[in-house]
Amino acid sequence: MTERTVELASRELKEKVKELKRAYEELKALDRMKDEFLAMTAHELKTPLTPMLSLVRQMLDRNLGKLNEKQEKALRIVSRGAERLGSSIEKILEISKLESGRVELNKEKIQLAPLIQDVTEQMKPLARLKKITLTQRMTKLPPVEADGRRMATVLTNLIENAVKFSPEGGKVTVEAKQRGNKILVQVRDKGVSIAKKDFPKLFTKFFQVNHTRPGAGLGLNICKWLVEAHGGKIWCESKLGKGSTFSFTLPVKR
């Protein structure tokens, strides 16, 4: 290789490095813009939603006076819409944060049993709307190392789905037991069956089993992110006419 060729190659390399640096700076700027956009979105969407959600609830709770039957019916529709909007905003923000890799899990030694109990209790009003019996079955569980708030999100999403896809008067069960050095949590429903071919797609973003049900198709994707970030696995089993079971594992705290 002549001196001239080496010089040319070296100049070319320098140019490439410059290009890469430029591209890197551009990406960083885009990332900052995305963050700012998300923060702005969160603020702009949540701000008007807060009075909507609170006031509809206050009216339904008769905090602001009596209601007739038609008014109550109308308000329940507004309430469901506002809650759905709120839930979608939260999910979009959560998935954006998870994908950006900037989520820090606040892992600590926690007991899953009281957490499962709390989330199940919180979900009972939603289940009652469809006359669904929501029960839990747990054996004695050792502690896990997990971010309690995020685990509550996983459970909430799974129970919300089970309720959503169950028929009126159905049954949803949350079970937790120890399996070796893992805790196995399962949410069972007797609702819509899921075709085996759809199993791999279930946990991907925007995938929906049934387009007639509301939802952005983000809940299960969030669950997968969070369970895997805790060193666990998540999967689904379903049999025609028998409903579905969503399971996830978490390693026991040593």
Binding site: T50, P51, S54, Q58, N63
Partner: peptide, 11 residues
Amino acid sequence: EPDLCETVKLL
């Protein structure tokens, strides 16, 4: 946000 103030006040 005046609407937020009013909401919390009512509650």
